[in-house]
Every structure is written in structure tokens, then in C-alpha cells.
């Protein structure tokens, strides 16, 4: 079945999977997992250069920027001001105006601070950023972000790194129904079926980090996620059967031997 590619802010992606670069046991394993995932965009964090240990390898030595679009995040920021500051630094470091905007409101859940997130989106859009906000799975907040000029909305499936899967499928469906920008389910995926569910619900893409980086075999899990995203997308487009309470026989009822 023909599908249109994922397009965000006029840029086309053939993979609907976006992956992170954190928590890998080594950079070579990360690079191998990235290749296996088929992703075309990877997230990175903006942090102070370690001045006391300059010997450490650079992340960018292991990411082919001709192959992968870098998506700097503002992870760890708890105010709109700090997130805007991190976004500006990320733009200068990566020479690209794309940002995964995070404004965290609570340490234990890492849930976003909605008001600050909307405020930071307004500021960054005015400065010409392509803003992809990580948000609650709340259709009202997603609409506000879109109104503020977000290029996509990225509702969480479950808390970051929790691996719990899509906790509120109904909201993801409603967010997709309301949105006129792409909907990327960001965070909460634990295994391949979670990614497939996100896509079956109608999401335009899935973003994940821990589910791959923390797996026993990250490279094979990356392959599984690639296939799951493709399978879920195809199932979504194919039109699933309605759910029914009772059985409907798959084989003819006539001509059964002995009747």
C-alpha cells in the first residue's frame, strides 16, 4: 500500500523512527544500533564540555551527520528560560535550527511543565527554530503547542525511560485526530509491540532511546523497532477489523464431515 513519507517542517523522512544517543555501553554499539534502526534523525543533549578530562571521545565521531539529522534536545531544563538558552546553544553547536524542546516540571516523573513548554515554544518559534516539543499526552496542550507554531507535537507514551508502553492510547488517538502537524510518540516504549501500538493508533512516528540503548542486545532491538514501526504503520493504513465479543468462524460452516 502506498504511503506518504513523514514530513516535518518541509523536510521528508523515509523512516518514521527517531532514536536517541544516550545510555549506550559504547559509541560503536550505538553506531551499529543507529544503522540497524534505519532512523534518519538522532537526538543529542547539550552539556558543558568536560574541561578536566579532554581525552574522552566525542559523540560526533560516531554519528555520520551526512546520514543522520541531529536533533539537539533541551533535556534537564526546568524553566522556559533555561530551555531557550540550551536551544540557542544547540543551534550554534549543530548549525541547525531544529530542537526537541523539553521543559521538565517534575523530577520523579520527568513530566513536562505545560505552561513553560508553551511559553518556550512561542519564544523559539519567533526566533526561527523548528520546534518539536516533548509534551504530555494531552490533546489540549498539544493544540496550544501547535497554535504556538510547533512543527510537530511529541506526546509521551509513558514516563521517559519507564518502558511501560502506551499508557493512554485513547489520548494518542485524539491528539492525532486534532493535530494538523505530525504526531511523534516520544518516550515510554519498552519493546517492539509498544512501538507498533503507537503507529497503529495513527502516530506519524516514534522517538525512543532507552528501549534500544538499554536492551540486552541493542542492535537486534533496533532492528525489531524498525520492523515494529513499519508493521504498525502498515496495519494502521490497512484498516483493522472491528473488535467483537464473540467468535466468527473463519472456515465455512457448510460441508463439515458428519453433519
Amino acid at each position: 500500500m502506498p504511503d506518504t513519507p513523514l514530513t516535518i517542517a518541509g523536510r521528508t523522512f523515509h523512516s518514521r523512527l527517531i532514536v536517541g544517543t544516550g545510555k549506550y555501553a559504547s559509541f560503536p554499539i550505538m553506531a551499529e544500533a543507529h544503522a540497524a534502526s534505519g532512523a534518519e534523525m538522532v537526538t543529542v543533549a547539550v552539556r558543558r564540555v568536560n574541561l578536566s578530562d579532554r581525552s574522552r571521545e566525542s559523540l560526533l565521531d560516531h554519528i555520520d551527520t551526512n546520514r543522520y539529522t541531529l536533533l539537539p534536545n533541551t533535556a534537564g531544563c526546568y524553566t522556559a528560560d533555561d530551555a531557550v538558552r540550551a536551544a540557542r546553544l544547540g543551534r550554534e553547536a549543530g548549525l541547525s535550527s531544529w530542537v526537541k524542546l523539553e521543559v521538565i516540571g517534575d523530577e520523579r516523573t520527568l513530566y513536562p511543565d505545560n505552561e513553560a513548554l508553551v511559553e518556550a515554544t512561542h519564544v523559539l518559534v519567533r526566533e526561527g527554530f523548528v520546534v518539536l516539543p516533548y509534551t504530555n499526552d494531552d490533546p489540549v496542550v498539544c493544540r496550544k503547542l501547535e497554535d504556538a507554531g510547533a512543527a510537530a507535537v511529541m506526546p509521551l507514551g509513558a514516563p521517559i525511560g519507564s518502558g511501560l508502553g502506551i499508557q493512554n492510547p485513547n489520548n494518542i488517538r485524539i491528539i492525532k485526530e486534532f493535530a494538523s502537524v505530525p504526531v511523534i510518540v516520544d518516550a515510554g516504549v519498552g519493546t517492539a509491540s509498544d512501538a507498533a501500538v503507537a503507529m497503529e493508533l495513527g502516530a506519524d512516528g516514534v522517538l525512543m532511546n532507552t528501549a534500544i540503548a538499554g536492551a540486552g542486545n541493542p542492535v537486534d532491538m533496533a532492528t525489531a523497532m524498525k520492523l515494529a514501526v513499519e508493521a504498525g504503520r502498515l496495519a494502521h493504513l490497512s484498516g483493522r477489523i472491528p473488535r467483537k465479543r464473540y467468535a466468527t468462524a473463519s472456515s465455512p460452516l457448510e460441508g463439515v464431515v458428519g453433519t
Binding site: 544517543t21 545510555k23 547539550v46 564540555v49 574541561l51 566525542s58 559523540l59 553547536a93 525512543m208
Partner: peptide, 10 residues
């Protein structure tokens, strides 16, 4: 002065 670079993240 702040000097930052990219590190692994999600």
C-alpha cells in the same frame, strides 16, 4: 563563559 558540546541523550 559557557562552553558546551553534544553528548548522548534522548
Amino acid at each position: 563563559i559557557e562552553v558546551v558540546n553534544f553528548v548522548g541523550g534522548g
